[in-house]
Design a protein around this nucleic acid. Structure first.
Lengths: 262, 262
DNA sequence: CTTGCCCACTCGTCTATACGAGTATTCCTG
DNA sequence: CAGGAATACTCGTATAGACGAGTGGGCAAG
């Protein structure tokens, strides 16, 4: 009688050059891909795999760490190792900042999430004046000081995004933009009211593994990268009026852009 | 006398709740961030750290594996552990497929790389007819069969991108598009010559950790995510005429988009 | 029945050891 | 001096054992 209920896992190939822990990881990965273990399912425990394969516990743990690095599984202390569930994904359309989408009162995030049936929250709101970093400063035309608006976004209690908007201080000071809640249509609506008619945005997208700080802020599982988006807003005079620096949990987002073929 | 030349690393805090291997990883990470170890520098060897901290080798290795997972360091068998050098980054502008950029003869990749001073190569070119996957099929309007054009791109001998274009077979068969080299301006120029004037593109962007297959194809270091870009090209009649599925080494790319504020 | 404790099971951390394999250096030999 | 072998150092893989800590179920006491 096999000690593993499903018998989904085979035997090791002692003649193979491939390391034992990699062979075990391969078998687990394939079992997951084939659906023998579904999302959220518990994998065999370390002790069971030790017995099944006749290897030491560290070898089994090594296999799990490979799969964790791939973002495939999630270990929970005291419970087991589980196939990582894929969270619902938020789709960011490239026209989400178009004027026609500036809803009354609520932010784009809240409106979209409500429409998708998720419960959105905004968190750790912070507005303060700062000296900009070199990168931000360069993008904004080297202002000495900037207004920074930080906030974290959550969907169904799960943090998914952390963003900071930077605006030249001479432009934002003593305006509704410096208020925690800038009012309907957000800061873009306020900028236009202040005479800075927006012309276009530039977005830069990178992906990388998170820093420990980002892991903490976004409560990221290991093996989940982040998408780093930097958006610069330009007015019709060609001046950069805002830079928004956003870090997103990559497993929660798809970015969608529509481009003319001209 | 300290066994470590630089003395950049401190001592452990035995009263801390933080695991020893995490404390060691923290100190190494901070030393790297502060520039005590520059890009490409060799970190202290496992044996040196074992002696410095008075811990076992597995604990030191555990620290290194944390940093590897963050994409910060790179272990080389027989040589040492090194601060991962940041490769030159390729910037993909959103207008790279505009008609005005269709150069004579060469592909966009070759032209851009030459301009940036890198030595570009295209590799493992493959053109064949296939049955499309469910996802590709849905995007192309459910054709029974498609033409698939696969190729890998390298910069200075390093693979950075792997892409497959899919086109409905009825549209591409027995045309220059089915040739390994479709001619000046690439397949988009050929599509327009065939009467499919391009109207717009849609691009979807995701980021995730690579599969073992992708690690192999792109020769990815551990701790490097991939950017997955799916572009669909539409003609003026609203028909999807091509889907291009691209997997990029995330440390080699920045994607740049320009969006109107309308 | 409810409460609370204990125990079994889970993963987390750490030690000590052994051998293998890739790399670089040193040193000896021709 | 040139070439190659021996050596020392590097990380890679694997074992065996120990203790800690989080979780959940069962059992016993109230």
């Amino acid at each position: 009688m096999p000690s593993l209920p499903s018998g989904a896992l085979g035997a090791l190939d002692p003649t193979s050059d491939r390391a034992v822990f990699r062979q075990i990881a391969d078998q687990l990965r394939e079992a997951i891909d084939r659906g023998r273990f579904a999302e959220g399912d518990k994998l065999p425990s370390e002790a069971e795999l030790v017995e099944h394969y006749g290897v030491s516990r560290m070898t089994v743990r090594n296999s799990f760490s490979v799969l964790q690095g791939e973002g495939l599984v999630l270990a929970e202390h005291g419970k087991g190792v589980f196939v990582r569930p894929r969270p619902p994904v938020r789709r960011l359309a490239s026209d989400r900042f178009a004027r026609r989408h500036r809803e009354q009162g609520k932010s784009a995030f809240i409106v979209e999430a409500d429409a998708a049936g998720s419960r959105p929250e905004v968190d750790s709101l912070e507005v303060k004046e700062e000296r900009p970093s070199q990168d931000i400063s360069a993008r904004l035309g080297s202002p000495r000081r900037v207004l920074a608006r930080r906030r974290r976004y959550l969907l169904d209690k799960r943090p998914v995004e952390f963003a900071t908007s930077y605006l030249p201080l001479d432009l934002a000071r003593n305006t509704p933009i410096a208020e925690p809640n800038p009012g309907p249509g957000g800061i873009y609506a306020r900028l236009e009211e202040l005479g800075h008619r927006l012309d276009h945005f530039e977005e830069e997208i990178r992906a990388r593994m998170p820093s420990p700080q980002e892991v903490k802020t976004l409560q990221l599982a290991s093996g989940v990268p982040i998408i780093h988006l930097i958006r610069t807003a330009y007015d019709t005079e060609g001046r950069a009026v805002e830079v928004c620096d956003t870090v997103m949990a990559a497993d929660a987002y798809v970015l969608a852009y529509q481009l003319p073929a001209t």
